[in-house]
Every structure is written in C-alpha cells, then in structure tokens.
C-alpha cells in the first residue's frame, strides 16, 4: 500500500480534531479532539519514518505519547476541578479572563 495514503488519513484526522476543538463546547470532547490531533501527528511521524527508512519519526512518536499521557493527567484534573466548582463542562462558561 502506498504510504502517502497514511498521510492523507493523518491530515484528515488532524482536521477532524482541529474542527472539534474549535466547534465543540464540551471540555471532554475538546480534550478528546486534542488527543486526536496528537495521534494524527503520531501517525504522520511514523509514516515519514517508514518512507525515509530511519527510526527518528518513531522515536518522536514515543515522546509524543509520553507528553500526551502527562497532558491527559493534568488536563483531566483541570476539567474535573472545573466541573466541581462550576457544575458545567462547557469551555465557554470558563470565560472569566476577558476584559
């Protein structure tokens, strides 16, 4: 199979993720979309690794996973505490930082 197809898939996934981040209000969904974007990147890295025949992309994919795992820990904690205090998971409700 032509590896370029994987890149198309990665781009599609990234776009879906980005659109989700911009459009959806639920913090959990937004968070999931962010994860989707990260994984789209991972897919692209791995694909490039395959295309160029070296392991650099795969190593970076592992790093990304580690960072994503850490991000999930912090991000979920924020979302949970936000939900506790405001009884809402909408990102638009947390708009106190405007002028």
């Amino acid at each position: 199979m032509n590896p370029v197809n994987y890149l198309y898939l990665a781009a599609l996934l990234f776009t879906i993720g980005a659109a989700g981040v911009l459009i959806r209000r639920n913090a959990i969904v937004v968070f999931m979309c962010v994860e989707l974007m990260l994984n789209a990147c991972n897919l692209a890295f791995v694909t490039f690794s395959r295309m160029h025949g070296n392991l650099d992309g795969q190593i970076i994919a592992f790093f990304t996973m580690v960072v994503a795992a850490a991000e999930v820990v912090v991000g979920l904690a924020i979302i949970v505490s936000l939900f506790r205090s405001r009884h809402s998971a909408s990102v638009d409700d947390a708009s106190l930082m405007k002028l």
């Binding site: 980005a18 981040v21 911009l22 209000r25 990102v91 638009d92 947390a94 708009s95 106190l96 930082m97 405007k98 002028l99």
Partner: peptide, 17 residues
Amino acid sequence: LRKLQNGYARSYAVSMF
C-alpha cells in the same frame, strides 16, 4: 485590539490555528 481578548478559549484557538 482589546476586543480580541474576549475570554473564550475557542476563539484563542481559532487565532492560533
């Protein structure tokens, strides 16, 4: 310029994208 600073995280995300 102040009007851009509306507090909605999603609009910041738009400008970032």
